[in-house]
Amino acid sequence: MQTIPFIKMHGLGNDFVVLDAREAVIPPMTNAVVRALGDRRTGIGFDQLILLEPSATHDFRARFFNSDGSESGACGNGSRAVALLHGAAATVETAGGPIRLEPLAGAARVDMGAPRFDWDVIPLAFAMDAFAMPVAWEPLNNPMAVNVGNPHAIFFVGDADAVDLGALGPVIEHDPLFPERVNVNVASVAGPDHLRLRVWERGAGLTRACGTGACATAVAAIRRGLVNSPVRVTLPGGDLTIAWAPGGTIEMTGPAAISFRGTFDWDDYS
């Protein structure tokens, strides 16, 4: 029986279990193990599991798994948690592309790379204008689609809190229009540099915070001329600051924290 150490962390209440395989040997991660560990009643419980591994091309590699066992290309809040845990600036390999981490006092700054807007990169099932998609799920319509390492659909509404995202989120996430599913963001403009945001996260559901959702939503709002950069994005768990200029990369700044450390026996969850 192999005992595995873990670190429980969170960014604005979006919580993670971090497994560090950069030096220690951890068995191959499976969908079943992730789901068992992620169960909040019988496992450790988390929104995402983060697996750190050696990289041949960067300082190290980070893999992100949702609580349903699916793997994601990027995780903004998780990236800040990794920066805090690593404790030094680093360039990190992810499935969504390389990111640059810089720890701060109780927080971190992450260069998330450049957003992508082409319909086939997001991806969508067929060609359409991703700037204002001619689709609707009442009362949500004409979203912008953005890929920031994972796919996002962003809807701008008068009052984000009034949307029944718990009902609409899974419908949109699993719509055939999105062959890799999609993160669903509903946002309201609260000022010239301020957005309020709620997110239905692909593979995790309603979440207190989503870093990539904040990035995608800020980019969409800047492109539509709704706000100016840098943007304060207020989520149920707190605020993130997102800076972006067209043609550049996205810089995200916000808090992260270690909750506790522990161990589990691999055979109990495999």
Results as ranks from 00 to 15, higher is better:
residue 48 Q to C: 11
residue 125 A to M: 11
residue 153 A to V: 15
residue 43 G to P: 12
residue 101 L to M: 04
residue 57 T to W: 08
residue 113 G to N: 07
residue 95 A to H: 08
residue 52 L to V: 07
residue 44 I to C: 08
residue 133 M to R: 06
residue 118 D to T: 12
residue 84 L to S: 07
residue 47 D to L: 05
residue 48 Q to M: 12
residue 162 A to Y: 11
residue 62 A to Q: 08
residue 103 P to M: 02
residue 146 V to L: 07
residue 109 R to G: 00
residue 106 G to Y: 09
residue 108 A to Y: 08
residue 90 A to W: 03
residue 72 S to K: 05
residue 81 A to M: 13
residue 161 D to T: 14
residue 48 Q to F: 10
residue 150 N to V: 00
residue 31 N to C: 15
residue 77 N to M: 08
residue 113 G to T: 04
residue 113 G to L: 06
residue 63 R to E: 00
residue 151 P to W: 00
residue 79 S to D: 04
residue 90 A to E: 03
residue 90 A to H: 05
residue 34 V to I: 15
residue 89 A to T: 08
residue 143 P to S: 09
residue 36 A to P: 14
residue 116 R to W: 03
residue 91 T to A: 06
residue 119 W to H: 11
residue 81 A to C: 15
residue 146 V to T: 06
residue 28 P to H: 13
residue 83 A to L: 04
residue 68 D to C: 10
residue 139 P to Q: 08
residue 58 H to L: 00
residue 41 R to F: 11
residue 82 V to L: 03
residue 61 R to M: 03
residue 63 R to T: 00
residue 135 V to T: 13
residue 152 H to F: 03
residue 157 V to M: 06
residue 95 A to V: 00
residue 139 P to Y: 09
residue 122 I to Q: 03
residue 137 W to D: 08
residue 119 W to A: 10
residue 85 L to R: 07
residue 126 F to M: 07
residue 60 F to Q: 01
residue 26 I to M: 13
residue 80 R to E: 07
residue 141 N to P: 00
residue 128 M to C: 13
residue 64 F to W: 05
residue 48 Q to S: 10
residue 44 I to P: 09
residue 121 V to L: 13
residue 60 F to L: 04
residue 44 I to K: 09
residue 115 P to K: 05
residue 96 G to P: 05
residue 57 T to E: 15
residue 61 R to D: 03
